[in-house]
Design a protein around this nucleic acid. Structure first.
Lengths: 159, 159
DNA sequence: TGACAGTCACTGCCTAGGCAGGTATATTTC
DNA sequence: GAAATATACCTGCCTAGGCAGTGACTGTCA
């Protein structure tokens, strides 16, 4: 087990000065901006990801999507409900495995999905304004390492 | 206006390889772990922050909390409803300004709030396992710069 | 003083996700 | 082939937040 450095102490902890605060606020702020820029497409931040995953072929069922986004399957069911109601996704019961519902984008869904990367890429590049290539790599490296540390919790499970 | 580097391109964009993905996943994973560790206290990730802010004296009204967390005032109203229902917070209509409802922790609320920093600090330090002091500083610096870039969107408003 | 803008808390309606439980179907194991 | 196990999807109930609109109140300024 690696040594744990005391970057923070309970006695002097302040919400606003924490890394956790920064990470959450960054996610919150960007999410909100994505929502705003997706308004023209009639999409939300939660909806563009499954749309793009279906478009790019990485996922084809609700189970795929829930694994891919680390979301509850119930949440995904309802997310698909909303996408289906908007006429962007079709549900097709699989013939091979009758438990499975295959998801397909409608023509309109495909059209929207194709627009998504342009918006997202533009925004991410803007958020990284002023970053050098080295800083960009380092940022990803640090985020990745923090994520790996955090993920370890899930695996350990309750003692 | 600073130059914007094309770290990502729309044609080759993949959800899983994006910095945005890392930031969101990190926030999501840590949030879920906080929820788990707060179970004993009967708190959620959303609830420990207002509790601590009231405890430390940084906030004393719903408006304070909504500004502090960048949340909708409606969301805060309902968050306080839940904290009040748990017997952790009291609402006291202000005499000086009768629009204002002053918030106070109950005795039980104070007790819980005092436990919160221990849990949070332990978790954050664990997430930063393996980080050097330099990396820690750099991480905060990069997050801060990204956040400042992202915040600029809100200020600009629609064109 | 009386209109007006701003602030505070709240409400209804929406999207969104977690958890627990249920049903149908597949797969594995004996 | 029957029983146990796993998987896929769905549902109800919960917390949670955004947006728009409301009523009560305060401060300002003509």
């Amino acid at each position: 087990m690696t040594e744990i450095t005391e970057f923070y102490k309970a006695e002097t902890y302040r919400v606003e000065s924490s890394v956790g605060y920064l990470v959450n606020r960054l996610a919150q702020t960007v999410t909100r901006e994505v929502d705003r820029r997706m308004l023209d497409l009639g999409l939300t931040d939660a909806q563009w990801k499954p749309l793009l995953l279906l478009h790019q072929g990485g996922c084809s069922t609700a189970a795929d999507l829930s694994r891919s986004a680390c979301h509850d399957t119930g949440a995904v069911t309802r997310l698909i409900d909303r996408l289906e109601a908007k006429g962007l996704v079709k549900r097709l019961r699989s013939a091979e495995d009758r438990r499975v519902v295959n998801l397909e984008l409608t023509d309109e869904g495909e059209l929207l999905a194709a627009e998504v990367p342009k918006i997202i890429v533009k925004l991410v590049n803007e958020v990284l304004t002023g970053f050098s290539q080295d800083e960009f790599s380092l940022f990803k490296n640090l985020l990745n390492r923090a994520l790996i540390n955090a993920r370890a919790f899930n695996d350990e499970g309750p003692a």
